[in-house]
Amino acid sequence: MTWTLDEAPSQAGRLAVITGASGGLGLDTARGLARKGAEVVIAARDPVKGRAAAVEVGGGELQFGTNFLGHYALTKRLLPLLRQAKARVVSISSLAHKNAHIECDDLMSDRRYSPVKAYGLSKMADLLFARELQRKSGTPDGGCCRWPRIPVWP
């Protein structure tokens, strides 16, 4: 006897906390429960893999995940080494940030999705992160961060 996810009842209104959900069976389970309407919480040892899984499973907005969350997670993990090496973090943005408005209660654009809006939001997040990194560096020259760059094409 075979069983498919299509035969499973709706999981709307249920919360599922899944350990080991950054890969393998845990990730497949998270995908299936999310597809059936459950609110899924990803528990993973590796925060970078966990965030990537959460973006994928939640149908999360991939531009925001790719353009901001991944860079944020990587920078946060490497920050002690970057400071030790006196390295700089350069954030690339675009003028699309000017039309962005951050809605904290709908950060992943679950209620109202627009690719243009999502891209602008990811670039606004890049700018805000760069600004905060600059502020926390505590040095006049920016310490670990330079102001973000916006490419200008001819």
Score class of each variant (00 low, 15 high):
residue 137 S to T: 12
residue 48 V to I: 12
residue 58 G to S: 09
residue 22 S to D: 08
residue 33 L to P: 00
residue 126 D to V: 13
residue 115 P to L: 04
residue 89 V to G: 03
residue 44 A to F: 06
residue 13 G to F: 08
residue 125 A to I: 04
residue 113 Y to I: 02
residue 81 L to W: 11
residue 114 S to T: 08
residue 122 S to M: 05
residue 59 G to R: 11
residue 62 L to A: 14
residue 45 R to D: 08
residue 108 M to T: 11
residue 107 L to A: 05
residue 113 Y to Q: 05
residue 40 V to G: 03
residue 37 G to D: 07
residue 41 V to I: 14
residue 36 K to N: 05
residue 124 M to T: 02
residue 137 S to L: 02
residue 105 D to Q: 10
residue 56 E to F: 10
residue 9 P to S: 14
residue 16 A to D: 03
residue 108 M to L: 14
residue 77 R to N: 02
residue 118 A to F: 04
residue 67 N to F: 10
residue 22 S to V: 08
residue 74 L to Q: 03
residue 128 L to K: 12
residue 134 Q to L: 15
residue 117 K to E: 09
residue 128 L to G: 09
residue 129 F to W: 09
residue 52 A to P: 00
residue 30 A to K: 09
residue 133 L to G: 08
residue 86 K to W: 07
residue 137 S to N: 01
residue 71 H to Y: 10
residue 33 L to D: 05
residue 137 S to G: 12
residue 137 S to V: 01
residue 28 D to K: 12
residue 132 E to D: 14
residue 104 C to W: 05
residue 109 S to M: 10
residue 72 Y to L: 15
residue 137 S to W: 02
residue 49 K to S: 13
residue 112 R to Q: 12
residue 87 A to R: 05
residue 108 M to R: 10
residue 87 A to N: 07
residue 127 L to C: 12
residue 24 G to F: 08
residue 67 N to V: 02
residue 122 S to F: 05
residue 138 G to F: 07
residue 77 R to Y: 08
residue 70 G to Q: 06
residue 63 Q to W: 02
residue 112 R to A: 12
residue 73 A to I: 00
residue 135 R to I: 09
residue 64 F to L: 15
residue 60 G to H: 03
residue 90 V to R: 03
residue 52 A to W: 03
residue 46 D to H: 06
residue 59 G to C: 01
residue 108 M to C: 09
residue 94 S to D: 05
residue 102 I to G: 00
residue 62 L to V: 12
residue 56 E to C: 06
residue 106 D to A: 00
residue 85 A to G: 04
residue 27 L to K: 15
residue 81 L to M: 11
residue 67 N to Y: 10
residue 123 K to V: 00
residue 9 P to A: 15
residue 81 L to N: 13
residue 115 P to H: 10
residue 12 A to S: 15
residue 49 K to N: 11
residue 107 L to K: 02
residue 103 E to F: 02
residue 116 V to C: 05
residue 70 G to H: 06
residue 47 P to H: 03
residue 37 G to N: 08
residue 100 A to G: 09
residue 104 C to E: 07
residue 79 L to N: 04
residue 14 R to T: 14
residue 120 G to Y: 00
residue 13 G to M: 07
residue 61 E to H: 04
residue 10 S to K: 07
residue 67 N to P: 06
residue 97 H to K: 12
residue 134 Q to G: 08
residue 130 A to S: 14
residue 129 F to D: 03
residue 117 K to L: 14
residue 77 R to P: 01
residue 77 R to D: 11
residue 53 A to W: 12
residue 63 Q to R: 12
residue 85 A to Y: 01
residue 120 G to P: 04
residue 46 D to Y: 09
residue 84 Q to V: 08
residue 96 A to F: 01
residue 77 R to V: 08
residue 31 R to P: 00
residue 30 A to T: 07
residue 62 L to I: 13
residue 106 D to Q: 02
residue 35 R to W: 05
residue 112 R to K: 13
residue 86 K to A: 15
residue 8 A to D: 02
residue 66 T to A: 14
residue 84 Q to W: 12
residue 118 A to M: 02
residue 124 M to C: 04
residue 76 K to S: 13
residue 77 R to G: 04
residue 103 E to C: 05
residue 105 D to Y: 04
residue 32 G to E: 01
residue 15 L to S: 07
residue 68 F to Y: 15
residue 46 D to K: 06
residue 46 D to C: 03
residue 50 G to N: 06
residue 130 A to F: 00
residue 33 L to A: 05
residue 93 S to D: 06
